[in-house]
Design a protein around this nucleic acid. Sequence first.
DNA 1: GTAATATGTAATCAATGCTTACATCGATGG
DNA 2: CCATCGATGTAAGCATTGATTACATATTAC
Lengths: 204, 204
Amino acid sequence: MATQRKTYHHGSLRQALIDAALAIAKEDGVDQVTVREAGKRAGVSSGAPFRHFPTKTALMTAVAEEAMRRFRAEITVELDRTGKLDPLARFRALGIAYLRWVIDNPTHFEIISMRRTIDFDASETLVQLNEEIRGLMVRILEDARAAGQLRTMDMEGVPLQARALVYGLARMWIDGQFAQWGGAEKAELLMRQSLDNFLALLAK
Amino acid sequence: MATQRKTYHHGSLRQALIDAALAIAKEDGVDQVTVREAGKRAGVSSGAPFRHFPTKTALMTAVAEEAMRRFRAEITVELDRTGKLDPLARFRALGIAYLRWVIDNPTHFEIISMRRTIDFDASETLVQLNEEIRGLMVRILEDARAAGQLRTMDMEGVPLQARALVYGLARMWIDGQFAQWGGAEKAELLMRQSLDNFLALLAK
DNA sequence: GTAATATGTAATCAATGCTTACATCGATGG
DNA sequence: CCATCGATGTAAGCATTGATTACATATTAC
């Protein structure tokens, strides 16, 4: 992994460190990510990373940005794919895509949501991407209401409820609360059922 | 805080360490808890804690047990208090008590749910308490169905959905996702609205 | 081409989880 | 009553890791 380098300067150390950190997290867990190891994989000394990131938190924040970008990419692909369906079907697809991404990329999601290891508010990118994704969901829900697909109810609370449900399912998976019910496939099925239950309650 | 002690032996160091860890977490945050500092507050050397807990994880697991016990106590008090109400009202009270406890004791909840810092499955107590609390919720939901208070629907999915919703709201608070909406009071209000929305969807 | 800036290395510090060798206490058996 | 032994504490130290500092090297600007 440690890219051999002939020049004294790395050339793209910043990105290499982000990639290395993501790889370590994926392979050995988020808490196994160390600045040294990230530097080692990028082929530099233990102090070099600090030229690009003042703190480990700053590195992890950049990693979170990368993860969030990939997350948004997945979401938008799914929304494009379902562009012609009715709003509620798209909403369902959005939720399923969200949950599947979490199951497929648990460490990525963990890094994004573990706001003790990153400095979320300090990252314009993170705040903006987060708002963007939330906005997408809210808009589709409003489309569904406008299309008369929802039971009449407080539209102030529905988006939060939907967010909390999906976020809760995702974190329950990350936190190992699905362990007793088998592996990823079973968990994904249960999540989908839960989501469908919610939609059944919500739909007219 | 560091209890002066005249004897060479502490006498109740184990519990003192748990209390100290809880206090540090409450004052300075969970990640500020160190074995040394816990020992210091208990008035012992840096190595003494390891006579009672083989690893820091074991200490934090014991701390989680203590926190979970307090959580259950709060829950059961609330259930006793609402013993004469109808099931759905009790279910609501349960949810509200859950969420208020999280808001009042964020670090305690954090320790319980942060299963990277504790060894949940290794603790018979934690597994048992967790099941017990889950069982309470499920039973009340079933009472509500038996009383004809719920719309007909897959009872397999409803408990999970309820859990995910409450867990999600709690973790969103812990993870700072309510920051933009003001302090604890506003957050609690939003949580309650979200819960009531869910109940409105669920009720016949 | 030279000076200034950016980026890397090596050495080192402080904090912290954990271990080891030794000290001291308290309970138990004779 | 007291000698022994297991339990519990101390002191010192190790390994890891985030962070800093002094110095070296490359790149860019003028």
